[in-house]
Write a protein that binds this DNA or RNA. Structure first.
Lengths: 338, 338
DNA sequence: CTGAAAGCGCTAACAT
DNA sequence: ATGTTAGCGCTTTCAG
């Protein structure tokens, strides 16, 4: 089948017997046009299956493209998927489209993606920063009027808007929940690398709770890992300590999966208390139900979109950080005796 | 802060004292260039922070834009997120970028998204079709050389490539697993509307298994619902029948959540067997472990990308359907006595 | 109400 | 090895 050339404005104009500009006027409801020409133009458009070339339009108009560039670590993680959904909800009504890519937490890939997005002249750039990424190169873009929003974690080397969960307060609340049940030795299983923003904040919340309860910080109770198997191993190590913890705090959903699994396999699920950061689908069905500090990823996305749209509307105030609250959802696993 | 105009090729050319075409040549490694001009051009590019305008380039070159348009029902569903991740993996090395939107299973929104993507002259269009959507309008696009791939479900009104899970065989295997344990009355909890492709195929697999076991099809055992609460209600109704089923098949992950929850709450988790279509994160940790027919969403995405890239490379053979296999993961819940 | 000409930023096709 | 001209598909600007 021959690759027929797509019809252009000129084709439609020729078909109708008017100038290209007239067709453009009708389609964009720019300037006036007689009802009759209007009808004939629309008819020809439908007949030819004409679709205006948005790229050509954008290049002429000169403004940014009607896209929002979004970089996340991993598209398959429902947390980031839901964030993206929240963003899309908020930008759709403004006629903006989402351009997405995943960095796999790699600074180089992140840079490559943001460069591509910049070359596409996105209207807004949103990034979940990778650990070692530097964002100094975005300064000039921001200066030139491009809204830049960091999601889930702050960017580095640049003052830009940022939307994050209240990791510290959320963790403090989760750990306080365990302390309230009488636990005095609480293990913390966190991310790797320790310098990851969310890990740092959550660990800070853990320490806050200990300080408030006038308990010492014992670094033997703090372990870092980055996958499910590692988390299982971490649980084993913690419970094998001379003075083992009676409760555990799993600082993210991956680690939580590993911890829940290990406790279940070793028959200690009703024996060791557990609270996790970030909710999971079957959390309420487990026995005992998994108590979590739930984040609000959709709201994270919506807040980021709101911030960016305000910038597009001319808001030139200084960069701000929006903190989205978390919610402790008690389902039982945090209420086991010491 | 003044919105400084972005530098263009001409700006770089002026800065260096060469023609725009020379700069273009250096940047695209087109034609020859003396090492010296090359160095000076690259220097000026870096100094000015020049980034070529991809849209302008594309419009001149005339080909499609280097983007892949993808419509999914819901970005937050990890199944579709993982599909998207698989696609991205496969297209990145070709320099293609993902343009995404969610339809919320609404034909109108789906159409709006595909129209936007077409106006952007995407290189490839991938769609998870909404139930009532018609795709006749894509015929001319396909004829004009645009690769169109339907994902997870076939499109309607057009012959185009399609990549789906083996819903029927997978369900047959899952139900056969239950039959093998001696169950003779097996409830089926499926999607709404019944005409949804995946629902139909899975129901067909269920019937296949019954036929093979020479058991009658009892439509009192088949219920449709579309959310977790509905699934819980469906379980209650099925178990309240005069001759209740001794096993259940949950035809998707949402329904599975509801079924697992209801069985757990009513203390019948060890009493009623259960197999679900599509895997879930904590499935292995439940007691009993949830037996599932696992799909392979990443492979679904990669296969779709492979098909589309082959089309871009000139494959003009007739539209084909790629079926991605499923895997029965037995974890216990399917092995409970009758 | 409509059209002609110019030009957005870039590259193909021909010079030189 | 580099420059010139023309033009991608559209809209702006200015005339009618």
């Amino acid at each position: 089948m021959a690759a027929t050339r797509r019809p252009t404005l000129a084709d439609v104009a020729r078909e109708v017997g008017v100038s290209a500009k007239t067709v453009s006027r009708v389609l964009n409801e720019d300037g006036p046009s007689s009802p009759e020409t209007r009808a004939r133009v629309l008819d020809a458009v439908a007949r030819l299956g004409f679709q205006p070339n948005l790229m050509a339009r954008n290049i002429r108009v000169g403004g940014p493209d009607t896209t929002v560039g979004l970089v996340v670590p991993n598209l398959g993680n429902p947390f980031f998927g839901t964030v993206a959904g929240g963003i899309e909800d908020a930008i759709r009504e403004r006629g903006l489209t989402l351009l997405m890519g995943s960095s796999a937490e790699d600074a180089g890939r992140e840079r490559q993606l943001t460069d591509t997005f910049l070359a596409r002249r996105v209207s807004v750039l949103m990034v979940v920063p990778s650990v070692d990424a530097d964002h100094g190169h975005l300064k000039s873009q921001r200066a030139a009027g491009l809204p830049v929003v960091f999601l889930d974690r702050p960017g580095s080397g640049i003052a830009a808007d940022c939307v994050v969960s209240d990791n510290r307060a959320g963790t403090r609340e989760g750990v306080a929940h365990l302390l309230g049940k009488g636990h005095r030795r609480i293990g913390f299983i966190g991310d790797i690398p320790p310098k990851l923003y969310t890990r740092r904040e959550r660990l800070a919340g853990y320490r806050d709770a200990l300080v408030h309860a006038q308990l010492p910080y014992d670094k033997a109770l703090v372990v870092g890992t980055h996958d499910e198997a590692g988390a299982a191993e971490a649980v084993r190590r913690l419970l094998a300590l001379p003075e083992p913890p009676t409760a555990l705090f799993a600082a993210n959903n991956i680690v939580a999966l590993g911890a829940v699994g290990e406790l279940a396999r070793t028959g200690r699920a009703h024996d060791v208390a557990l609270v996790a950061f970030d909710d999971l689908p079957l959390a309420g069905v487990l026995d005992p139900g998994l108590t979590v500090v739930a984040q609000n990823p959709a709201e994270l996305g919506r807040a980021a979109a709101r911030t960016a749209l305000a910038r597009l509307d001319g808001d030139r105030s200084r960069a701000r950080t929006v903190t989205v609250g978390t919610e402790l959802v008690a389902r039982g696993s945090g209420e086991l005796g010491v």
